[in-house]
Computed example of a mutant assay.
Amino acid sequence: MNFVAWMIIASEIGFWIVIVLGLVTRYVLKRNKLGLLLLALTPVIDLILLLATSVDLYRGATATTMHALAAVYIGVSIAYGKSIIQWTDERFRYYVTREGAKPIQRFGMDYAIHYLKSWGRHVLAYLIGAGLLTGMVYLIHNPSRTEALIGALKVWTLALGIDFVISISNFIWPKRKKA
């Protein structure tokens, strides 16, 4: 595995460590402001990954799928970060501290609308990640070194389209409660 792959793994581990530390600090240690500060550090992890990827490419590395995955990771982290933290916060409060309301399960039109909003976040992640990918292609300005980036962008565009079809299908065949 190359340097960028390890940085992506470290970023994901760091993301969850910061979230868990933030929640433990906030709810178990009752240090609300410090817990919120820890949770607010998650974008710093994205910045570190962006810098590591940029330096690797600047030093002349040929862009790989891992470089593309770093851009995807950053886009997804920025677009979904707040909702992931909120989702984790609700479950931590309910299942760990036994405080707060039980997390709701969505069905029917409520689920379809929620999924469509999530697809909107996917679009935002795509715009951020595609912007990073396009920026890398433009800055490197060497097609033989950026093939993997263009390929990843094509695959992600297809995945975004498939996600849209799934999103619309939820309105046609709504998710039902299991009996």
Rank of each mutant, 00 (worst) to 15 (best):
G100R: 10
G100H: 14
G100D: 00
G100E: 01
A101G: 10
A101I: 12
K102G: 01
P103R: 15
P103S: 10
I104H: 12
I104T: 15
I104M: 11
I104E: 09
Q105V: 12
Q105P: 08
R106A: 12
R106Y: 06
R106F: 06
F107A: 13
F107H: 15
F107G: 14
G108Y: 00
G108N: 14
G108Q: 10
M109E: 13
M109T: 15
D110E: 09
D110F: 04
A112L: 13
I113S: 02
I113N: 11
H114S: 06
Y115L: 08
Y115Q: 11
L116P: 13
L116V: 08
L116Y: 03
K117Y: 07
K117P: 03
S118N: 03
W119H: 12
W119F: 10
W119Q: 07
G120V: 00
G120D: 07
H122P: 01
V123H: 02
L124N: 09
L124M: 08
L124S: 11
L124D: 02
A125W: 06
A125Q: 09
Y126R: 00
Y126W: 12
Y126Q: 01
L127P: 13
I128L: 04
I128Q: 02
G129Q: 00
A130L: 09
A130Y: 08
G131D: 11
G131H: 07
G131Q: 13
L132M: 13
L132C: 10
L133A: 09
L133Q: 10
L133K: 11
T134D: 04
T134W: 03
G135E: 04
M136C: 05
M136A: 07
V137T: 07
V137N: 02
L139A: 15
L139G: 02
L139D: 08
I140C: 04
I140T: 09
H141I: 15
